[in-house]
Design a protein around this nucleic acid. Structure first.
Lengths: 373, 373
DNA sequence: ATAAGATGTGATAGCGCTATCAGCAATGAA
DNA sequence: TTCATTGCTGATAGCGCTATCACATCTTAT
């Protein structure tokens, strides 16, 4: 695998080219030779199956991919031959010939965030039924990596691509458009979508939560934000909070906004402590994320602060633990699994030729009021 | 896409076969025609780049895949031509020709379990650097689905396959062995591995936890188990608990073992309540899983039971929240992310020809004693 | 100086499959 | 009964790339 090109040690698989040169015109002999070769290479090919079944290669191909176009009789012959030979189709060759890969690529900022894995599972559950597979990529919130992944996935000729978030580079957009790849953007409602969208308005959700904070009688809000990454997902939630607070005439002090050091419970707890140290009169803390909010609540427990009495906390996402904690977490529910399902359905519809699909799907959100606020 | 085979409406991409028939022998004309065709089909091919660069197709291929074998001069010509033409390599064709896909398939029981996404992320972070991608599959703990996925992934000619757990069907094993696919089993230490293994002994970990329960002075243990799925991952932990308890002469009553309804916090809490209702003298509950344990602890909180005083709880996995709860959770740490990394490294080493790799890698475990026991 | 090797390059021949089309039989309409 | 239609089948010709080999240039060792 290194630089030596003329090693005498044969590679694991070498092409049967020595023989091929000689048998250029010798069809009758070549037939037998070929069979031996195919066995040597370790893969039964569609033609081998065809020969055993006594039909043409195309009939085997059809029997596998469009059974209804093949007579029941031949179908059975093929099925038997496949069993006999242990044939395993080569989907790479099939993809090349048909320009359809039956692969959908998913690019997420991170794999370990529950909402993203919920979404991925939702997609999987829908797409798996039609024998599509998922090719995964994670950007760690880096635009550069997203661009690179998009290029790679185009190279792999994926049939569809699911992108998280609304901001993508110009060059990526152009390449996607040039390459006939179905794209679904998710987790947001971009103003200028590439193609289809399945998401919700993070701004609206955050604004609504903030307005409710006012309606519930809180007077002195604080905000805990996730680390500001290159994308602006978090920013949109912050903007929503600020806008909502304004709507209900709540003043947000500058020092009452704290950016957590990391997207972890620990960091959320630390942020809360910092916030309250700076201004003990804060009575509600809006978090851009459930992880941070849970961390904040757990920090309250450890510090003996009751919630919502001492300080109320709200989250964003409604992760599993939100309703198990005491106090349970008031938060915004965005249904990741269902979003994934919807993505899968739209993707399938489009790939199966249904162009008349709705392009924008707003999955909405839901404010879940529990004990913490 | 349905049954009609002779629609006059052309498909999105039709082959230039009408032209091809005529130009069978007309090479000089064909050259120009081909260029027009390639543009029509919407994909620049390697040959187009070669023409623009004034080199052979192989040189372009080499410049991309083994740059050091091409002179700096030609390398530059190629780079310019690629820029000029906007060439995007077709990895499907490349895979077919080279029988290497640079795709690793991962089959997990579920995508939403944090330990599995940790592992996947770990693999990704290592493999991404060498331009490998991950193809994902989830079995929902079904052997049948695993078999089907393995077959599909072999069809896709993945270079490597990562399987969770130790029990796989005979036919799958055979197919994997016949198809020259590198396999890594993970999350366990199978007695009879297919190929490489990266895991830990769930039995030993559970046994050790149980022995410690005895050492810490608990007298009347209970167990909460995950729903028993078709595989025996959970069973191995239960067996470990039982064996460990025996080692320290603790008697486990039959009715003190409770199988949770689901792998959720809620179900874990319910199981704890059930267990204590049946036998209020239980003083420690060993859970096969952190999710259940956290659920149990949160149920304690809600019921006003102090832990470990009223009842101690231990988990398995050390998920993020374990050290944030009050009381923090005593549990077994198994480092999923690091396991993923190790898997990635072994996979790369093997695929790059290093056969002398260690085949079995025991990642071990660690008992983390915190407040809950 | 010369043989033997190393290096760089391009032509050729597939990789294993499917799109397309032409042929043939069976069916239906006129 | 005849011509058009439909249904099924197989031969052919790629899909776009890379493995291999042959050849021409350079090096290096003798």
């Amino acid at each position: 695998m290194t630089t030596d090109t003329k090693t005498s040690k044969p590679l694991a698989r070498t092409r049967a080219s020595a023989a091929a040169g000689a048998s250029k015109r010798a069809k009758p002999k070549a037939a037998k030779a070929k069979e031996a070769i195919s066995r040597k290479r370790g893969h039964v090919r569609i033609e081998d199956v065809a020969k055993v079944a006594g039909v043409g290669a195309m009939t085997v191909s059809r029997a596998l991919n469009q059974p209804h176009t093949v007579s029941a009789e031949k179908r059975k012959l093929v099925a038997d031959a496949i069993r006999k030979t242990g044939y395993v189709p080569n989907l790479v060759a099939g993809s090349l010939a048909s320009s359809r890969s039956k692969i959908i690529a998913v690019i997420n900022p991170a794999m370990r965030t529950s909402i993203f894995s919920d979404m991925t599972q939702g997609m999987w559950d829908v797409l798996e039924k039609e024998d599509y597979q998922l090719l995964l990529g994670s950007t760690d919130y880096s635009q550069r990596r997203e661009d690179k992944l998009i290029r790679t996935f185009i190279s792999r000729r994926v049939d569809g691509l699911v992108l998280t978030g609304a901001s993508h580079s110009k060059s990526s957009r152009r390449q996607l458009e040039n390459n006939n790849i179905t794209v679904i953007e998710t987790f947001d409602l971009p103003a200028d979508p590439i193609d289809m969208v399945v998401g919700f308005s993070a701004f609206e959700a955050a604004a609504e939560m903030a307005r409710l904070a006012g309606a519930w009688g809180y007077k002195n809000p604080g905000i805990i934000t996730a680390p500001k990454t290159t994308d602006n997902r978090t920013q949109r939630r912050i903007d929503g909070f600020i806008s909502g607070l304004k709507d209900v005439k709540l003043r947000l002090k500058k020092k009452s906004v704290c950016e957590a050091q990391a997207l972890t419970m620990k960091a959320g707890g630390a942020a809360l402590e910092q916030l309250l140290a700076a201004d003990p009169t804060i009575d509600i803390v809006l978090c851009t994320n459930d992880i941070l909010a849970v961390g904040a609540l757990l920090a309250c427990q450890r510090n003996g602060w009751s919630s919502p009495e001492r300080v109320a906390v709200t989250g964003f996402g409604d992760i599993e633990i939100a309703d198990q904690l005491s106090p349970s977490l008031t938060t915004v529910r965005v249904r990741g699994y269902e979003m994934g399902q919807r993505i899968g359905e739209l993707m399938l519809a489009r790939l199966q030729g249904d162009v008349a699909q709705a392009h924008i799907c707003d999955m909405g959100f839901e404010i879940i009021r529990r004990q913490s606020a």
